[in-house]
Design a protein around this nucleic acid. Sequence first.
RNA 1: GGAGGGGUGGCUGAGCGGACGAAAGCACUGGUCUUGAAAACCAGCGAAGGGCGACCUUCCCAGGGUUCGAAUCCCUGCCCCUCCGCCA
Length: 423
Amino acid sequence: MIDPRRLRLEIRAIAERVRRRGVELDVGHFEKLDGRRKQLQADVERLRNERRSASKRIGAAKAAGEDISPLVAAVGDLGTRLGAVSTEFDEVRQALDDFAKGIPNPPDDSVPPGDGEDDNVELRRWREAPEFNFEPKDHVSLASASLDLEAAAKISGARFSVLKGPLARLHRALTQFMIDTHVREHGYEEVYVPFVVDRDILVGTGQLPKFEDDLFAIVGDRDQFLIPTAEVPVTNLIRDTILNPGELPLRFVAHTPCFRSEAGNYGKDTHGIFRQHQFEKVEMVQIVRPEDSWDALDELTGHAEAILRKLELPYRAVALCAGDLGFAAAKTIDLEVWLPAERRYREISSCSNFLDFQARRMLARYRSADSGRPDYVHTINGSGLAVGRTLIAVLENYQDGTGVVHLPDALRDYMGGISRLEF
RNA sequence: GGAGGGGUGGCUGAGCGGACGAAAGCACUGGUCUUGAAAACCAGCGAAGGGCGACCUUCCCAGGGUUCGAAUCCCUGCCCCUCCGCCA
């Protein structure tokens, strides 16, 4: 969330920056609401002050054994008046809060301009896309014996999958390999977290209130949702806390299923398991001091890249343009892996710096060493990596044209010594 | 599922209708002392919002209610602990 004070003082400048995303703020509406808020706040505070002093006088009179009934009568309808004014005050404040929570994070100045995917800027490539001396198959035709999309459709509908035998094992091996690497080599603490969360938690990381359609809601009295990413429960681990500066940075890695209803994506990537309602992801989350967040973003992106390099998968890093940025991110670097069957790079990781945007919503702070006062932490996260998409990349990049997939060395131990899969 | 006990500042914990934003301790910050450190002593020290400012308002799990007045009383919800039952 935007700093409410800044919103008040420099809403036009903020509107200008948010416009880079293609989002238009209703400045007039905001100024009208905030003007009303000021008036009401002054009224409420004045009435409360009156009530307070009157009650104190009554208390003092009573203690002195005096008759308090004239004083009580003098208070009159103060309570009723206060009630009416504070009701309206609450409504206006709520409206302002909704307005503020609906504003996306302004893009960092380093974010390239643009409206969508085509305007993203390539930063670097690792390993050029390989040439095959045969027509590379896509993951569906390659692994059809172990990939049962019909069974999944019968159970849960489109965009779910059933993996069997070697494919299920490879999927699990990739997950273990990623977590172990981040824990052993990159200094992350592994965490296991709930996959069902309350509404507030999703407001904290920015999925709500705006994007409810993208989520699976749980039926029940409690207003809960399935997580769309581990970012949600993991980042919220530090909500409502004030950390000591010595505790930072915090680095968490979690493996969770992710559930996305993918509203608005009908007809997109319908082939195979590239875009699913349920998929697995290994997610890295860092909680850092404000001055460290940009370095942390580079570092975390490097940790995701390390997985691709160990798996020897060709990829490129891309800076998302302003129009392609997620709601809460100030800047995002996507990693895109080469998929031979599609002959193009596809997203496999998304690493973002949220600055204090999520921290403000979650009330996640640390006690600054200089000022001694609580200040918002910065949050960073990124996939390391999306497991299903990594599975696709391994299958397609390591096929030899005879229906055999040769596994990268890094997975050998996780596959019980097996070095090739035959389908 | 049944029966009890609780949720108070960064932490522990007292207060249980009126001068309470809240005792005390710990932690933290500054000072005295010391070659330095520790100890001891002295002082300071919650958060959010508003105002140029003196200052004002709000916050004792959350939401309602009673009252001139609620951390304190009542109702509902959530969470934690203890015992019993059941269960992976």
